[in-house]
Computed example of a mutant assay.
Amino acid sequence: MTRSLIAHAKAGTIDQAPAVARIPVSAYTDPALFELEKKRIFRRLPLMLAPSSELPEPGSYKAMTVVGVPVLLTRQKDGSVAAFLNMCTHRGNPVAQGEGKASRFVCGYHGWTFKNDGTLLGVASSDDFGAIDKAAHCLKRFPVLERAGLVWAILDPASTLSIEDYLCGYDDMLANFGFDGWHVFAKRTISGPNWKTAYDGYLDFYHLPVLHASTFGSDFFNRANFFAWGPHQRLTNPTGTYTKLGTDQSIDLAAMDEKDWPIDALMAGVWTIFPHISIASFYGGNARAVLISQLFPGDSVGESVTNQYYLMEREPTDAATIEGAHQQFDFLKTVVEGEDYATGKRQHEALMSGLTDHVLFGRNEGGGQAFHGWAERLVAASDDELKRIFAAERVAEAAE
Rank of each mutant, 00 (worst) to 15 (best):
I6C: 05
L253F: 01
V67T: 08
F390C: 08
M173E: 14
P275N: 13
V81S: 01
A381V: 12
A131R: 07
A320I: 04
D133I: 03
R40T: 12
D172L: 14
D180W: 15
Q327C: 02
Q97G: 02
G59H: 12
T215F: 04
R91Y: 00
L351Q: 13
R43S: 13
T74H: 10
I277G: 09
L378Y: 01
T239D: 06
Y206R: 04
Y199G: 06
L47T: 08
S80C: 09
D117K: 07
F216R: 12
D133M: 06
T119W: 09
F329H: 02
H137T: 04
L174S: 00
R40S: 07
E35Y: 10
D180R: 12
K333P: 14
C107I: 01
H8G: 13
A391F: 11
R141K: 14
T334C: 11
Q347N: 14
L139K: 02
D257N: 15
G201S: 08
F84M: 14
F274S: 03
A21Q: 03
T247W: 03
G269S: 13
G354Q: 13
Y199E: 07
C138G: 15
P58I: 08
I251N: 00
V336L: 04
C107A: 10
V336M: 06
N86I: 00
G298E: 09
A153Q: 02
G98M: 04
E385S: 14
E337M: 07
Y242E: 00
L47A: 12
L295F: 13
T13P: 14
G368V: 02
Y206S: 10
V270C: 05
G79P: 05
A342L: 08
E313Y: 11
E400P: 00
G59V: 05
S293E: 05
D264R: 03
L291A: 12
Y283T: 10
L203I: 04
L208K: 04
A17N: 08
V81P: 10
N86G: 05
Q294Y: 02
A21D: 10
P51L: 09
F179R: 07
H8W: 11
F179D: 02
A254Q: 06
S52D: 04
D172T: 05
R91S: 00
A83V: 13
P238K: 06
M87N: 11
A50N: 06
W195A: 11
L73S: 01
K115M: 11
A148P: 00
S278R: 01
K140G: 06
L85Y: 15
E315T: 08
A9T: 09
D384S: 09
N222Y: 05
P94W: 00
P231S: 06
K10F: 10
T243E: 15
F390V: 07
S60W: 00
T215M: 13
A17W: 13
A17E: 06
V305Y: 07
S60K: 09
I292G: 11
R288G: 02
A124K: 03
E57M: 08
